[in-house]
């Protein structure tokens, strides 16, 4: 379980942060904004997941980026700067090519943010956050997450028992194997259903659903969380104000026009950079602090 760095903050902060960066990277098509989101998401995902993330980005994200960038000009023929004509007689325009690249960057940034989200927002945090709002649904969620590994173990046990009477999936010809596999699954299902009723009755006899019951939680909203929340919300506010004033947008059709650079727009970009880099900065600060503590000893 990764609880260091940004993941160690309160689940509410994790959730709000990812909601904000995901929405922003979907909405703001200005090239600066996109580059900031893409680079930050990529760095953060490498920081979180190490070498696997580099491989993921090179093997999956890069081709996806290129393919998505090429799809748009093939179907979208709007724009005034015509580059050449396709065999079908439709024009390929500079605007639609750039638009394709831009939406490809957006798509890849969203996927990278989601890969960070998956590493930080573990299922227990999600259940903690939504346990009050949708108690029955989140109980189902946590039970399912528990049941899946349990069924795996149970299948193993059943298959050992079946092997001792020569009816495992590794025994007999392929038809028998398939049939044995079905028997194991059938035993499993019956066991699962019986076991479920037993669990439910046990829950009931221990007072599930009665009023006044509390639940255990691991998380506290402490001063560190408050400080982080304040910083995050102020950056989000600046970016949203910039978005309302049109600083973060970009017009592609009929001709390309990006918002002009002003002092205010630079402030908005800086705020967005700060927001996207927040977990990375936090991670680095923590590493520096740790180094200085250990070096003093």
């Amino acid at each position: 379980m990764n609880q260091s760095g940004f993941a160690g903050y309160h689940p509410f902060i994790n959730f709000v942060y990812f909601a904000a960066v995901l929405l922003f990277s979907m909405f703001f098509m200005h090239p600066f904004m996109q580059v900031i989101a893409l680079v930050s998401a990529s760095v953060y995902s490498i920081l979180l997941r190490g070498r696997g993330a580099v491989r993921f980005q090179l093997a999956l994200m890069l081709p996806l980026l290129l393919i998505t960038a090429f799809i748009n000009p093939a179907f979208n023929h709007a724009g005034v700067t015509i580059l050449f004509y396709l065999k079908s007689g439709n024009p390929v325009t500079l605007e639609s090519v750039l638009y394709g690249i831009s939406s490809a960057c957006m798509f890849v940034a969203v996927l990278l943010w989601f890969s960070c989200y998956n590493a930080v927002m573990t299922s227990d945090k999600f259940i903690y956050l939504f346990g009050k709002l949708i108690p029955a649904m989140s109980l189902i969620l946590s039970m399912v997450l528990r049941l899946v590994p349990r069924y795996k173990d149970q299948i193993k046990q059943i298959s050992y028992a079946q092997r001792s009477i020569g009816k495992d999936v590794t025994q007999g010809n392929w038809l028998q194997r398939a049939r044995n596999g079905m028997t194991i699954l059938s035993v499993m299902t019956t066991w699962a259903l019986e076991n479920a009723i037993e669990t439910a009755d046990s829950m009931k006899s221990r007072g599930y659903g009665l009023p006044g019951r509390t639940s255990y939680s691991l998380y506290r909203f402490d001063n560190r969380d408050k400080g982080f929340m304040a910083l995050m919300l102020s950056l989000v506010t600046v970016v949203i104000i910039g978005g309302i004033n049109g600083e973060n947008s970009m017009r592609f059709f009929p001709s390309i026009k990006a918002a002009e650079m002003t002092a205010f727009s630079i402030a908005v970009y800086a705020a967005y950079l700060g927001l996207c880099m927040l977990p990375i900065i936090q991670h680095m600060m923590e590493a520096i602090k740790w180094r200085s503590i250990t070096s003093r000893m």
Binding site: I140, L147, I197
Partner: peptide
Amino acid sequence: QARELMVIAV
């Protein structure tokens, strides 16, 4: 009820 939840979960 708990039984209903469990059946859906299973």
